[in-house]
Design a protein around this nucleic acid. Sequence first.
RNA 1: GCUGUGGUGGUGUAGGGGUUAGCACGGCAGAUUGUGGUUCUGCCAGCCCGGGUUCAAUUCCCGGCCACGGCCCCA
Length: 449
Amino acid sequence: MVQRPRGTRDFPPAAMNRRLALERLLEDAAQRHGFSRVQTPVFERLELFTAKSGPGIVSQLYAFEDKSERPLTLRPELTAPVMRMVAEEGMQMLPRPLRLSYYGQCYRYEESKKGRYREFFQYGVELIGESGPLAEAEVIALAINMLNACGLENWEIRIGHVGILKGALTGLGLSSEIPDGASEPPVASAMRFLDKGDDAGLAELFTNNGIDPEHAAPLRALAELEGGVETLEPARAILSSLTGVSLEALDDLQTTLNAVAGLASTPPSLTVDLTVARGLDYYTGMVFEVQVPELGGEGQVLGGGSYKLLHLFGLPDLDPCCGFGLGFDRVLLALEAQAEASGRDEVVPGEVNPNGLVALIPFGIDPNHVFPIVADLRNFGERVELELRGRKIPKAMKWANSIGCQFTVVVGPRDLESNQAMVKNLQSGEQQAVALNSESILEAIQAMR
RNA sequence: GCUGUGGUGGUGUAGGGGUUAGCACGGCAGAUUGUGGUUCUGCCAGCCCGGGUUCAAUUCCCGGCCACGGCCCCA
């Protein structure tokens, strides 16, 4: 038995139906916010991702060479491909801003576990060609509205701004350049220590960089702030006490949060947290992420912010952009866990079609007699399954019931003789004989529905 | 990268060094030649893979594969 590769999944009909429903919800939300779907190749040139994230990522890529020895890789994420597309397709000519959405599988070579797969699906959006607090608010608002539309509960959105802590740190004289032999700039180390609450590490870092460790205290206070918009006031007080720190980022964040409050439905939990760092160099401004506690260690379902990447493609004037990526599989896992916990049948809103199937059962007759009816009902928009196995009536009814039919239409020899069909609602048991033509059958179905 | 637990028909499980490997759901057929969701009968289908110990391994041991969990990481 050949098994599917580690970290990949098959999606049988029921699972796929659910995934389609979720994709539809996300796409509807994106469309309502003016975003349009794009698609890029599943594999790209290797350098696209090394340019974005550095050579270190190659170990986590499904990289390969084609027959002409071109270095290629399965895509590990979708932001860089979309940026590439914007540049390559001349999309800078389009009216700005561009609002793009995308959905597709990505590949990372890492340990697979629940919520972390080697082939995973990402939905995301990028807003390109306009930056600033309102653009950021539009992106956050879409994220919030999407998750609410999915019926997800108990999720937490944390919003921060990399500029605030970074500005304070560089204001103190900490370098944002990578020193020789180090793996990350001192500013990044400091951000990590602040996020983890590692006071000793922070003090040591300051000392090593010739900064008085006393200065760590206000930063720690800043990092520990957490709450709603109201936390911006104490943050402002702390930042004002430091020299050489601009308050602009804080003002922007305030503007963004106010706009989000007006544009988005209310999230279950929204906190301002200046330690949200997203770990990435190219984030330049607002950053945000969404956690679902039920999912444990792999609980981050969405993350994004403002970043500069288009300069890599010769379009620096389009930087910064703002976007987010949503972990499609994780959202689904969270919805499944929550549906299970609350005993809810429908995991994704809209996954169950309220108008079930119609089974057309030709019984003991030449099925040619019913083909036009099947075709017509389908053209009318009914979901029709034709009984193909020549089952006798009891078997056919049982079959129709087991595939979730709402109606059966039986046409047997007697019906043919009297030019009628038996239409039955399987839920109510109600049955009636109607004229053997598609209009009459459709009418009966609609009347009994 | 480190580490823990587990793997028996399609699904959920029982068992256990020598068994016809049990049960339930499911699928198929019949009881039932024009009406399903109940019932009865029969059939289908399984010990993850490789090596070792042993007279004998699905069972014990080692390795692999896969899944799940904890830490690190997460573009």
